[in-house]
Design a protein around this nucleic acid. Structure first.
Lengths: 219, 219
DNA sequence: CTGATATGACTCGTGAGTAAGTTACCACGC
DNA sequence: GCGTGGTAACTTACTCACGAGTCATATCAG
């Protein structure tokens, strides 16, 4: 390919690179993705990426920022619904399935075990994780307070269990690409019913406006 | 260091290298551990490792085999106890905490997200995971059958949730090194009680001979 | 003296990051 | 309308570090 501009403005090119890089990092993980891979997939050369993003870590940070924003806005949406307990859990899962459906790689990009342990992208991720941690721990703490357990370590461990349960449900869904978000939400409701007994309170309105129907509460 | 034998028999040296390598792989992960690291930690040189284990992957395979055997024997022990449901879960967790206490790196060695995606060590790990998967899925299937749900995908998803819950509890404990196995088992019982209601049936005898006391069942 | 135990010093591939050069767009003077 | 210089966009071809794996060689036990 000859050198020289192709008439693509920097902002456009950056957006294109980010799009491609998010897919690459999400599908293959940070460690298994080389900058050359991203450059090839985007149809450009490696130095252009370094020119625009400074480093592999810098590129990753931008991707993480983008992906985390998607997830976070979804979490905030279900937080704002005012539901609590299992109803809120189902609502959050449902929203996550719908948000991820057109861009499933987002999830693995954020929860990538091969992501760098330090640097700007680690900082971006840590900031997001911190917000998410607080949100989740507050919810768990409140529910456990209602159940009569206020031990901080118990709350911490329960929070870890809750997060891992959430992640495993999303992970299972990502591994079963033929399952629609709607079907997966129904599956989650069935599973919760199996574990916690019948939940008539879970007649939620997944996907719709959170306030359009009287939301149920559980706890 | 001068060359020449130091009077250490091959079997002894191999055992020593495995010991050191298990720690290194477990603590830092496969990807972040170089063969030179292991050699340095063992006080020997890199070619000796290649002479005895063939490759980094070969060394890792032996470590995985060793670690998986520890975990597997513990799982078999609680399976043989004859308990089911939550009682079995608690029993298994308790056994795992006790087995892991003197060698915590074993866990992360087996569940290392940076482990190679192919090769002998991958094969060894896959064999272990296959056995574990069957064991777990059978248990989950049986419990769900009792609850009236036999949908294969529901069972599969529930199994994923169960495994992740188990892993997160062990993971939480590994992150809180000051907590004793006994205290952690009690914490698990408290958490299960919080979620599932009071479980008088969970007056198990953790750590003792599984058959010495009438074990309770739950489902 | 033979073979097992052991090592220093290499090769080689890979991937991050860079230097230096090439081409097209665009504002400006005329 | 039309050269023309400046700058933004873009590439080829490199350096460099690091880690897996190898080779030739050295030393000691029996």
């Amino acid at each position: 390919m000859t050198a020289g501009t192709k008439g693509v403005a920097r902002a456009d090119r950056e957006a294109q690179i980010i799009e491609v890089a998010c897919r690459a990092f999400g599908d293959n993980g940070y460690a298994a993705t080389s900058v050359s891979d991203v450059a090839d997939a985007a149809g450009i050369s490696k130095p252009l990426i370094y020119n625009y993003f400074g480093s592999k870590d810098g590129l990753h940070a931008v991707c993480v920022e983008h992906a985390a924003a998607v997830l976070w806005s979804e979490f905030e949406r279900s937080t704002a619904s005012g539901t609590v307990g299992l109803a809120r859990a189902v609502l959050t899962l449902d929203g996550m399935f719908r948000a991820l459906a057109p861009q499933r790689w987002i999830w693995r990009l954020v929860f990538d075990p091969t992501a760098p342990a330090e640097g700007v992208s680690r900082d971006a991720l840590a900031a997001y994780e911190g917000k998410l941690f607080t949100l989740g721990e507050d919810g768990v703490k409140e529910l456990m307070r209602l159940a009569g357990n206020t031990d901080p370590d118990d709350v911490s461990a329960m929070h870890a269990v809750w997060e891992s349960m959430f992640r495993s449900l999303v992970g299972w869904w990502l591994d079963h690409s033929e399952v629609s978000p709607e079907a997966m939400t129904q599956r989650c409701i069935r599973l919760f019913s199996t574990v916690f007994g019948d939940l008539d309170a879970l007649a939620i309105t997944p996907g719709g406006d959170p306030a359009s129907d009287a939301p149920a509460s559980a706890g």
